[in-house]
Nucleic acid binder design. Structure first.
Lengths: 361, 361
DNA sequence: CCCGTTGACAGGCACGTTTCTGCAAGGTTC
DNA sequence: GAACCTTGCAGAAACGTGCCTGTCAACGGG
């Protein structure tokens, strides 16, 4: 009677419910649930029997029902910034890909899956997915998505210091100032006397911190700043800016580029002006791409360690979701790595007259 | 009485349910549901009133409950191949990133979100997310994830022809044979007399089709095949294979590389052997990366058009999910694009004695 | 005056779980 | 032998929606 009843209610063919398993195994629904989830107090014989029957019927618990009941979906949002209507940023391709890979792995290892949610998503889309928490990449000041998620009480962990007073649960970031200062010192040590910067016009934290660090360094060593800024999301603008930088009357003899494509762009510009690297021009850029290992010459790069960031962000988020007191601080700084290649190797000073550290002016 | 009751049941603070909205608006649950979803027959005044109250309470319908009730989650899986335990392939970075971007946009535009699900995911993770369908990239013969999804009756659309008899709902792919033949003809037209191939040891469809097309072409024009194969997921192996290819006694005077990093690797190898590009060696590789526009010299690339593929795959999948008779065929071929740059530009034949088409034997 | 129709809403079931409570049966202790 | 504890399971209440099935009033035609 009750068997026929549940069988009739089965509805969609091919999907067996927990009722069907209970009926087939001759036990109650409670017993099936307990047996499959390892809870309750059941003898191993019953547990095995229920598992066998469930396997035989091809039973898969409904994720929706489980989420509704437990309040946990096992889903983590990955909110990415957008330029135009395309998700992901153009200039940080390799960075994002690596970061997302690491985040996916880390989430998976702890039983969570990642949902890609562009920051400009239609409201009805991302409000229609049950999230346990969200990772936000480079949160902007007044991101409506993020602030709403926070308002809902969901844990939010950001890659990059949150701009403004965004109340995120935790964040992970590099020490961008220290990284820039390190690079400038490295270039000066290699013999650079006027270091230029290729930067962006955007106001995100990374660009802002890096640029001010450069300006402060210039002030400290007494060098006039030499930099060009361009809209970082436009790949063509980068090539033009690189060209402009090397065309200036006060042409730098070393350049640091903040964005991934700057290395090849600067190299191409140097060739146009007949500048040899590293003899006439030292080059460093921030990139995760491996192509800079086999350019002519290989270019020194700064790695922001996206793998470590992606992993750390997910760990912090899941700790918050599961209510674990995270042993680690809620603000975590990942060290950067300077991969020194030919493009910034020490060169002899061009003249022996002026000591390397004296600014020209 | 009933108000107090529902208020008490609210449980977690900050989340208003549909009951609370109904109570606050002085209507029934049905009316709220109908008003918000645009169904039923309600006067506009009631509809507006309910919407206002819902907004005021910050009401967000529970995604889990809606999914449970309707059977649709609005989630699409993006199943990616893995090497080791890291998701995504190493060699197709830019391809995957572009494809995923386009797929995300396309899904978003139709109200769906994407869930990243590596093919080697733990069973309990991906079986615990309610999917409406799945996109599979380059499905392997006996992928347990994919076959189980198919068995569950979920629509599955693959990027790349499905290997074996995998019963996918639809697939999108390039015409890899035609693309390779096109490139080989292009190189021959540019003066190549012995064209080499840098290929992979993996058995995926792309590698297999491309290699056999190369071999067939060689047979047709009477050239001895000159190729090196390496495990495509190992970036270092690519550099070594490129070197080996140019170190052979029967060194080719033109090379096509099947994978993204082959261009820079081949260029570096050519420099080591003192070969000028394109004078001594013509170069083409398959890549979506823009760095090849500004290498020295710029390298001709074959684009597989990942944006179009990602968009097409998602459209087909959502059509299947929503039960629309797709106007388009379930097998869709996206044309490739050969971006011709300096590395394969026509050069004069080295000697006028032997006609270009005659094999050396 | 009666009956069919239509508009505007309310009641209540079902979706498929998890879990709290409860209840027998058998064993232990004083 | 009664009072207890433990074991092994069953019943049923949620979780928050969507939607099917009423109900009730107003209305109009015959």
């Amino acid at each position: 009677m009750s068997r026929a009843d549940t069988a009739r209610r089965g509805g969609r063919p091919g999907r067996a419910g927990i009722r069907d398993v209970a009926a087939a195994a001759g036990v109650s629904i409670t017993t099936v649930s307990d047996a499959l989830n390892g809870k309750g107090r059941l003898p191993d014989a019953t547990r095995r029997h229920v598992r066998e029957v469930a396997d035989r019927l091809g039973y898969r618990p409904s994720a929706a029902a489980r989420t509704l009941r437990t309040g946990k979906s096992g889903l983590i949002g990955l909110t990415v910034t957008t330029y135009g209507d395309e998700p992901f940023t153009f200039t940080e391709f390799a960075y994002f890909a690596e970061m997302a890979r690491a985040a996916t792995s880390a989430a998976l290892a702890r039983g969570y899956a990642l949902v890609i949610l562009p920051a400009t998503s239609r409201h009805d889309v991302w409000s229609n997915v049950a999230l346990d928490g969200t990772v936000v990449i480079d949160p902007s000041d007044q991101d409506p998505v993020v602030s709403e998620l926070v308002r809902q009480g969901l844990p939010v962990v950001s890659d990059g210091r949150p701009a403004g007073a965004l109340p995120v649960t935790a964040w992970v970031d590099n020490d961008h100032e220290a990284a820039v200062l390190d690079i400038l010192d490295h270039l000066a040590d290699a013999g650079a006397r006027r270091i230029g910067l290729l930067t962006g016009t955007t106001t995100d934290t990374y660009t802002r911190l890096s640029t001010t660090a450069y300006l402060r360094w210039c002030e400290r060593v007494g060098q006039d700043p030499v930099y060009e800024a361009y809209p970082a999301h436009d790949p063509c603008a980068g090539a033009v800016a690189a060209d402009r930088l090397l065309a200036r009357p006060d042409r730098p003899d070393a350049v640091y580029g903040l964005f991934d494509p700057n290395g090849t762009d600067l190299l191409a510009a140097a060739r146009r002006y007949g500048l040899r690297v590293p003899e006439d021009l030292l080059l460093v850029c921030c990139s995760e791409s491996t192509v800079y290992a086999s350019t002519e010459p290989p270019i020194t790069t700064l790695s922001l360690k996206p793998r470590r960031i992606g992993t750390a962000v997910v760990q912090l988020l899941i700790d918050a979701i599961e209510g674990l007191e995270s042993q680690q601080p809620v603000e975590q700084v990942i060290p950067t790595e300077l991969i020194i290649r030919t493009s910034s190797r020490r060169r002899p000073p061009r003249t022996t007259v002026s000591p390397p550290r004296t600014p020209e002016s």
